[in-house]
Design a protein around this nucleic acid. Structure first.
Length: 850
RNA sequence: GCCCGGGUGGUGUAAUUGGUAGCCACGAGGGACUUAAAAUCCCUUGCCCUCAUACGGCGUGCCGGUUCAAGUCCGGCCCCGGGCACCA
């Protein structure tokens, strides 16, 4: 055996051997339990991997090796999410076909991954740009269309003038294009849209059953943004034309404040405005305001601290259905056309935005909610407990409101009020509803005015078309007679044709529009002249179902064999970045639920368990990027320290889901750990001695069992840093032995295998084994051997640690307490005093109070 | 502004979920081996007081509370990171 640990030789050798023996090939033994471990597949960019990318892949590798050795059939595949703008832009810049660029980048990525020694089953490799793959992406689109979940829309959408394409709400970073940072415009254009909001409720509710980090679930909840409210109709009165049967509808989450409405506001884009044109006396002003708004960017409209603007509709009033009061109506851009009904009732006393607007325009502010239930100062029950909720109106109506802090009141000429109080409370000044609590009043008031309860969402429909080349063609043919006709399933895939230039046409059309041979086709329905849809799908399409393809990667007859899917689904462990919370992870859940509904899959959630990876930052604390010149390349680390050291270090850096900075200094720690294992091997007893060797060192035996338990539990919990630390602690003890028992050392090698498979394999063979350690069973700890004979008891006096002592593990409470009081330190701290209290915490400490 | 995380030695972090704060690792200091260096091995390493590794005191962002006992629970703040943002 070589004297020094030569990682290069060892790693190359075993990677070769493993490949030859095909040990990572997925087994389909249906009698065994399965474990599907999945990474978010990468986008193969031209830059290659930096040292941060493999962190998640190493974790799934550790986890799946552990599961495999624990007796599971594992599925741990890898593939490429290769459609999308970066590849296209790379192609434009370098004047090569995106397909060629992707091939090149994939080869580079694969090489970088392979030297890390990951246990992927490459026979199941997939690529979203493969025609055999995207045939099924197109198939899913056709199914969505068939079920009415895909439709053409002409609504204004987000348009990135730099990327020359429409974008979904999810693709924005604030109001800028997430890719290039350009501020997006609203542009009306024809586009394909998916009705994701039909699934909003299920996407929200089913989060409860998922074993995902709470933070990710919360991000999705906020993104879906469900709010319960009411739709209430307001009749419109016009001075000029006397038309009184017009009405408009508002959405509010606070119908309980209806009596406090002092005006109404409609979004400038509201469609009813045009219908009312003749009734509105200052139509010119209205048009002017609307023009102004159109010119403004989203940023300008929503800038922080921006003063509210708006114009009153002269000659038009709304009737408050609760008290028949006539209210002025405004248009203002603080009301969004896309949300709710695009119109609101304004209650300045109880809404911050309405309050600001009312202050600026000198509108009345009427308080209708008292912060605390009135009962708190009007009456208390016999127990002295506050009676919550309902209070009789007679007493409430005339009460002053001592709950409002007087210093915060201000004069506005009409009402004295606190800055808007937006919480729940008791109704006041609300006719027969005064005294009722807010939650009760919500339903009651809504019913009273004939409104209906309604749920709305912030989630918008998924804008699904892109005016770019490098994506899946949307399988539609436009026929003048038949309209948008789906391409028949048998004609799938609609292959992306080659073009001379991948640049967008600049007209808002995809470059595909210029490929006449491809565009002009016969209508599948009437055989007449027709044109293909030239928009392509967004980058997120292929990744919305790829995890199903790994289960059955070469199937050309159906999306996935239901039998295979039944066995392998759902993904048991999904690992990736938290940045995908509101895009990929929502889109994939949406598609999966749809596929479940049409009977294509057996389960209705794709990813049962999710773990997020924390980023690895550069040493300077910034993100690793070519731009900052702070990128660390995994190839260099593998070359200098070895793949095993890289793997160990990335797992040891800190909590897995936390981001941490790469440290050139610290990586030496894990390397030294591996070298120490290498050196220690010379002290391992030879095979002959194995039989007669019994456990000579009981303490070590206990530590070994504790280590097995700890490492197993930590891997299961994704606490790799403490698993590594546990192995280090064990090794530090093992090192002190003159002779190391072979069985124990081999057990330790098994614990090491998921983290450092190459060195573990080498030493396993050096020890005289001819199997692969990957195929060995995971060690089990012995419960009887993790309890120590002696325990250390801490003694506290008045909460301060004053002594510790050792005692037999089975000592009784009495014995422990007595021995605690006998400690010599106690003469000083307890002395002649008689302890008031002596508390014994089993196996831990004695706390004495004097 | 709202919603999530997080704040512990010089650094990355650990702490059986209320029970001896600082495990493991890096760095630093000292020593051994060596002609020398690297590597390796041994010792020290939260802060203050101290000749002391004696006796003590302080200490987990800040202030207060609950408890025999708080890094951990409760209330109020201050910073840092992420997400959302005129969503009625």
């Amino acid at each position: 055996m070589a004297k020094n640990y030569d990682h290069k030789k060892i790693e190359a050798k075993w990677q070769r051997e493993w490949e030859k023996a095909e040990i990572y090939k997925t087994k389909e033994d249906k009698d065994k339990k399965k474990c599907y471990v999945l990474d978010m597949f990468p986008y193969p960019s031209g830059e290659g991997l930096h040292v941060g990318h493999p962190k998640g892949y190493i974790a799934t590798d550790v986890y799946s090796r552990f599961k495999k050795m624990s007796g599971f059939n594992i599925l741990h595949p890898m593939g490429w999410d290769a459609f999308g703008l970066p590849a296209e832009q790379y192609a434009i810049k370098n004047k090569i076909h995106p397909r060629v660029a992707v091939e090149k980048n994939v080869a580079r990525f694969k090489e970088q991954l392979s030297i890390i020694g990951l246990n992927y089953d490459w026979e199941r490799e997939i690529n979203t740009t493969d025609t055999k793959y995207y045939k099924w992406t197109q198939w899913i689109f056709l199914k969505l269309l068939e079920k009415g979940l895909a439709y053409e829309s002409y609504e204004p959408i987000n348009w990135c003038p730099s990327c020359q394409t429409g974008l979904a709400n999810e693709d924005l970073d604030g109001s800028a294009c997430e890719r290039c940072g350009t501020t997006v415009e609203k542009k009306p254009m024809r586009q394909w849209v998916l009705r994701i909001t039909d699934y909003a409720d299920r996407l929200l509710e089913d989060l409860d059953v998922l074993d995902w980090p709470d933070s990710i679930k919360e991000l999705q909840r906020n993104w879906i943004g469900r709010s319960e409210g009411a739709l209430i109709k307001f009749k419109v009165k016009s001075q000029k034309s006397k038309v009184t049967n017009d009405e408009f509808e508002v959405f509010t989450t606070r119908p309980d404040t209806l009596f406090g409405a002092t005006y109404c506001v409609m979004a400038p884009e509201h469609a009813l405005l045009d219908e009312w044109k003749d009734s509105i006396e200052n139509w010119d002003d209205i048009e002017e305001y609307r023009e102004e708004m159109k010119k403004k960017t989203e940023i300008e409209r929503t800038a922080e601290g921006k003063e509210k603007t708006g114009v009153r509709l002269a000659g038009v009033t709304a009737i408050n259905p609760a008290n028949q009061e006539e209210l002025p109506v405004f248009i203002a851009d603080y009301v969004l056309a896309q949300y709710g009904t695009g119109a609101i009732m304004a209650v300045p006393a109880h809404d911050t935005r309405d309050y600001e607007f009312a202050k600026k325009f000198g509108l009345p502010i009427r308080e209708v909610i008292s912060p605390r239930p009135l009962a708190s100062y009007l009456s208390t029950s016999s127990e002295g407990e506050t009676e919550r909720g309902c209070v009789k109106k007679a007493s409430a109506e005339n009460s002053p409101h001592p709950d409002l802090p007087s210093k915060e009141r201000e004069e506005d000429g009409r009402t004295k009020i606190q800055c808007p109080y937006i919480g729940d409370g008791a109704l006041i000044n609300s006719g027969t509803f005064s005294g009722m609590s807010s939650p009760e009043a919500k339903k009651a008031v809504t019913e009273f005015v004939g409104g209906e309860m309604k749920t709305t969402y912030k989630l918008r429909e998924w804008v699904f078309s892109r005016q770019r080349y490098w994506g899946e063609p949307i399988p539609i043919v436009h026929c003048e007679r038949c309209g948008a006709v789906p391409v028949p399933e048998k004609d799938l895939p609609v292959k992306l044709p080659d073009v001379d230039s991948y640049e967008p046409s600049g007209t808002g059309e995809s470059p595909l529009a210029n490929i006449h041979d491809w565009v002009n086709v016969k209508c599948p329905k009437c055989r007449g002249e027709a044109k293909r849809e030239t928009n392509t799908m967004p980058q997120w399409a292929g990744s919305s179902w790829y995890y199903l393809r790994y289960i059955d990667p070469r199937n050309q007859n159906e999306l996935v064999s239901k039998e295979k899917e039944k066995y392998w689904s759902s993904v048991d462990m999904y690992v990736g970045g938290a940045e995908h919370a509101t895009r990929h992870l929502i889109y994939a859940r949406f598609w999966h639920k749809f596929l479940f509904d049409i009977g294509a899959v057996n389960y209705d959630e794709p990813f049962a368990k999710l773990q997020s990876v924390g980023l690895i930052m550069a040493e300077d604390g910034r993100k690793m990027s070519k731009r900052w010149g702070n990128v660390i390349n995994p190839d260099d680390i593998v070359e200098t320290y070895g793949a095993d050291t890289l793997r160990m270090y990335e797992m040891f850096m800190g909590p897995f889901d936390q981001s941490s900075a790469w440290s050139t200094e610290s990586i030496i720690g894990p390397r030294r750990f591996l070298e120490k294992i290498w050196r220690i091997f010379s002290k391992v007893k030879s095979k002959k001695e194995k039989e007669k060797s019994t456990t000579e060192n009981e303490k070590l035996e206990i530590l070994f069992n504790q280590t097995i338990k700890r490492v197993s539990e930590n891997i299961e919990d994704f606490k790799f840093n403490t698993a590594v630390s546990g192995m280090m602690i064990f090794l530090n003890e093992l090192e002190k032995e003159e002779n190391i028992e072979r069985g124990m050392f081999e057990g330790f090698l098994k614990l090491l295998t998921p983290f450092a498979p190459h060195i573990a394999e080498e030493l396993w063979h050096e020890a005289g084994n001819d199997t692969f350690i990957y195929n060995e069973p995971w060690p089990k700890h012995d419960d009887a051997k993790i309890i120590e004979d002696m325990m250390t008891i801490a003694v506290q006096v008045n909460g301060k640690l004053r002594a510790t002592f050792e005692i037999e593990g089975d000592a009784s409470e009495e014995e422990v307490k007595r021995k605690a009081l006998e400690q010599k330190e106690m003469t000083k701290w307890v002395g002649e005093n008689i302890p008031k209290k002596v508390i014994y915490v089993k196996n831990k400490l004695v706390s004495i109070v004097v």
